[in-house]
Design a protein around this nucleic acid. Structure first.
Lengths: 199, 199
DNA sequence: ATAAACATAACGACCGGTCGGTTTTAGGAG
DNA sequence: CTCCTAAAACCGACCGGTCGTTATGTTTAT
């Protein structure tokens, strides 16, 4: 069983090295040689464990997106009302936004590759559409419980997703240009002002 | 004076070829040879007119951004009230969103390169911050004329920019996933609901 | 002994960029 | 209009280097 550990460790170090490489320089500009250098292994090891550079990226992609989905579902489930769910999701995003921007840079790489590679596009879009449906149901629930105005759930969900994506995008491009955590807070407040029911 | 025409035409064909190449395959994956093939010229012509592949991109970048700025300013100036200005801007964006997605793909390439190349980043951020200031002033004006609630103009402007960027991003990644023009309309309505003053 | 795990060197394709040579244009002289 | 020259515009072979990938050999664990 010692081989299994070796295998796991090597694979992990390659995946980690690829992650930091892709984040720092992007998929295209990060060569297999560079990944191996960072991981402290040879190309032989790389191609023994992975079929190609692309499969490494696809494997990382799945990890990232399933992690995100798990976090979102968990946070949403902890709230009692819909606006509170949204606020909690925003809180989670705020943590990501204000942390080391290493994490959000992943999304830039994801979007870039998704716009060019059909396989990446499919893999990226699937969870995206899942978030969309989660938000739609959340909005429907909010309308039912009377905390939200009777808007179109589909559009509402897309607005939230767009706003989130845009915030991430701006935070990546101009991390010091604003306090993106604060902007996120204000965004949610403005959005909820337009969404919540008043009498 | 025949030379001037030749020069202009060749430069234009190279720039056009580079544009379609960058949009279709991205900056990194579009080689100079491919650009020359599309343009119907040789590498010699390419490097006679342009210092490097990067300068071509930077020149295209300036064209794109100044065109966008011009359109926005023009549209904003035609309105009388602030909400109307915002609606007009949205209308302009809607045209872009619903047209051939060739145009919006430019932004993806812009963002990607901006996140990696310092020069591109500076060139991209400058007009971005200009739009930001335009929107801030628009919001201040709206507050002054009583059509907007007294929100923080800085955050308000950033929310609008984020939402716009996010919409473009989603439209690029999933052009057929929704009627992005409609989503934009609904977005503005929801946003204005949260921004406009009611009594 | 046997197979998994890894190292090393090399491959062919392609990259951005260079360079010497060729064609086209501009303009003046005869 | 013709000839000549200089500059502008353009061509295409070629360079060093990097890319992802592979083939072959060596070490390590079972």
């Amino acid at each position: 069983m010692r081989n299994e550990q070796r295998r796991t460790e090597t694979r992990a170090s390659i995946l980690n090295a690829a992650t930091s490489g892709f984040i720092a320089d992007g998929y295209d500009r990060t060569g297999v040689a560079e990944i191996c250098r960072r991981a402290g292994v040879s190309k032989g090891a790389f191609y023994y464990h992975f079929e190609s550079k692309e499969t490494v990226f696809l494997e990382l992609l799945e990890t990232w997106l399933s992690n995100l989905e798990y976090s979102l579902m968990k946070v949403a489930a902890e709230a009692s009302t819909v606006p509170e769910s949204l606020l909690r999701m925003a809180g989670m995003m705020q943590v990501v936004l204000q942390s080391n921007n290493t994490q959000i840079s992943i999304f830039m790489e994801l979007w870039t590759q998704a716009s060019r590679n059909e396989q990446v596009r499919r893999a990226t879009l699937a969870p995206y559409q899942k978030y969309q449906r989660i938000l739609e149901n959340l909005i429907r629930q909010g309308i039912a419980e009377g905390t939200l105005k009777p808007i179109d759930p589909v559009s509402g969900a897309q607005v939230i997703l767009s706003l989130s994506s845009g915030l991430f995008l701006q935070a990546i491009l101009d991390p010091l240009g604003a306090d993106w955590g604060k902007v996120l807070q204000d965004s949610i407040r403005i959005l909820l002002d337009g969404l919540t029911r008043r009498e």
